[in-house]
Amino acid sequence: MLHDALVNYGYPVTTIHGAMSQKDRDKIVKEFKDGLTHVLISTDVIARGFDQSQVNLVVNYDLPVVYNNPTQPDNEVYLHRIGRAGRFGRKGAVFNLLCGEKDEKIMEKIERHFDHYVAEVRSWTSNEDFEDALKKAGLM
């Protein structure tokens, strides 16, 4: 659904997930590395070991939670996900989409775990807030 929506808005998008064959996943990663697309939608299938210098923005469509305890964040997976942005001395940013009280509580636990406050940009604020966040991250 996300892939189709972005394509409909005119973005060239690549999507990768665990149900694909390794051959297909390798092909998609190569296309992304070669710059054929600038947006890669992924499940946690590439949360680890995906060291691409051109990744400067990660959007967590959902927050990772412990498999058998969905009220607890999976901090290790979160760290691997956000670690994709700004690698190799480059600047990067991470946006976490929070869709309710459950997500807010999980984000609070992540912040406590890493002892780091994550700045909030509310969806009902102006585009200036998003642009300001991107400027602070060195992406605009």
Rank of each mutant, 00 (worst) to 15 (best):
T43V: 01
V65N: 03
I46T: 02
K27F: 05
V121R: 04
M107H: 10
Q22N: 12
L6Q: 09
L2H: 02
I106K: 00
K136H: 09
G92Y: 10
A137M: 11
V39S: 05
V94E: 01
T125D: 15
F50W: 12
A85L: 13
P12T: 11
L97Q: 05
D129H: 13
F50V: 10
Y9I: 03
D62A: 09
F114E: 00
A119W: 06
L98P: 08
A47W: 07
S53K: 13
E76F: 03
N68S: 05
Q54Y: 11
E108A: 14
H3K: 15
K23T: 13
F32D: 04
D26E: 13
M107S: 13
T15F: 14
A93K: 01
R112V: 00
Q54G: 00
D44S: 15
I82Q: 00
L36G: 06
E108P: 02
V94D: 01
K102E: 14
A19V: 01
Y11V: 08
S53Q: 07
F114Q: 08
K33S: 06
M20H: 02
H38Q: 15
T43M: 03
K91V: 01
Q72W: 07
K91I: 05
G100H: 09
A85D: 12
D62I: 02
M107L: 13
M1K: 12
V59D: 04
F130N: 04
G35R: 07
D44L: 01
E128P: 06
K27P: 00
V121L: 05
W124R: 06
G100V: 12
G49H: 15
D74V: 08
A19C: 00
L6M: 14
G100N: 08
K30A: 10
V66S: 00
Y67E: 03
N96A: 07
I110E: 00
I110V: 15
H38M: 02
Y61S: 09
K33W: 06
E108G: 04
N96S: 15
